[in-house]
């Protein structure tokens, strides 16, 4: 149906449409410039707030209550720093801290030294380079749960392959699971096996920046492999070493799955006399086995403080090393 409209009206209407159109698109454009960035970062920050920051803060809140799974309403009982007072006198906590520290040292120090050496070797031009690098990285992509189970068998007392290998060179059977230092060594070996290749690739990446001339000059001076390693490779790696020490520290303080799987029957006590119960296993035991929510949160919070302290100490130490050299 055709309707006759005076052309002036039509024109006016068209103009108003265009004006609001313009205003609308300007608004949209302005929002696009100033609002969209927040829209883009929102998913991360919202998710982190809800599933990262909030649980962490709530852990601190839980630590000052007496929340027990089996006592309804107990989450409203406040005990102030009571849980922390208990923690200080809790032998099992100190035991777990000692185990974690021992396993951490045994699993980190040889590992990083070995990783530096492997990076030094991998740095050279060679055939099958990708294949060798893949071989070195293989342990790292294997699932932790599988690693723990496989090594639990390898370290078996009576029928384990490692004791068999030791018996060939005349060493008596070692009880890797029941012994205290024995289990620490075994877990240190597992950590070393799993992480050495990964760290050697990190070091290798840092080494790519080292000029080949340095090595060539050393060759001309008749330096040995080890001398070159000690005087060129290691100093070049220093900042990376500091970084990997800090990361390994954070990782080992949370050590959980390997020792859990290492124990036959997967009990979180870490052996009959808690010889290899780590801090994270102790949290799990308090939380899951005993339902002591608040106390488990207290141990978690203590772990957090330990991580902060350890990272801080690492940082200070590394600064001193750097400034003295």
């Amino acid at each position: 149906m055709a309707v006759l409209t005076p052309s002036s009206v039509l024109r006016r209407r068209r103009n108003t449409i265009r004006a609001t159109d313009n205003r609308w698109s300007q608004l949209r454009h302005r929002f696009d410039l100033s609002g969209t960035p927040y829209l883009y970062i929102a998913p991360f920050f919202v998710a982190f707030g809800v599933f990262g920051l909030f649980p962490l803060l709530y852990t601190g809140w839980m630590a000052i209550t007496q929340w027990n799974r089996d006592i309804p309403g107990s989450e409203h009982t406040f005990v102030g720093l009571g849980n922390f007072a208990r923690l200080v006198h809790d032998d099992y906590f100190w035991n777990a801290l000692r185990n974690t520290a021992a396993i951490g040292v045994l699993g980190t120090v040889p590992q990083l030294l070995l990783a530096m050496w492997i990076a030094h070797l991998l740095q050279r031009k060679m055939r099958g380079r990708t294949l060798l690098r893949m071989g070195v990285l293989l342990p790292n992509i294997t699932s932790v749960a599988a690693v723990g189970l496989i090594f639990a068998q390898l370290f078996g007392r009576d029928l384990g392959l490692i004791n068999w290998g030791l018996s060939l060179v005349g060493i008596d059977k070692v009880d890797w699971q029941s012994g205290t230092w024995q289990s620490w060594v075994a877990l240190g070996v597992i950590l070393t096996w799993r992480w050495t290749g990964y760290n050697s690739l990190i070091y290798l990446a840092a080494l790519q920046a080292v000029s080949d001339d340095l090595y060539e000059a050393a060759d001309l001076d008749g330096a040995s492999q080890f001398q070159k390693f000690r005087t060129i490779t290691v100093p070049a790696l220093r900042p990376t070493i500091i970084f990997s020490v800090i990361m390994s520290t954070i990782g080992t303080i949370q050590l959980f799955t390997e020792p859990l799987m290492f124990n036959p029957g997967m009990s979180p006590t870490g052996g009959d006399s808690r010889q290899f119960q780590t801090l994270a296993m102790y949290v799990y035991e308090q939380f899951w086995t005993h339902g002591k929510y608040s106390y488990a949160a207290t141990v978690s919070w203590a772990m957090f403080m330990i991580i902060v302290l350890a990272v801080g100490a690492n940082y200070l130490l590394s600064r001193r090393i750097r400034s003295s050299s």
Binding site: P55, T59, S300
Partner: peptide, 11 residues
């Protein structure tokens, strides 16, 4: 730098 594992109980 903050390990998520520490908030695992409230989660």
């Amino acid at each position: 730098m903050v390990p998520a594992q520490l908030g695992i109980i409230p989660l």
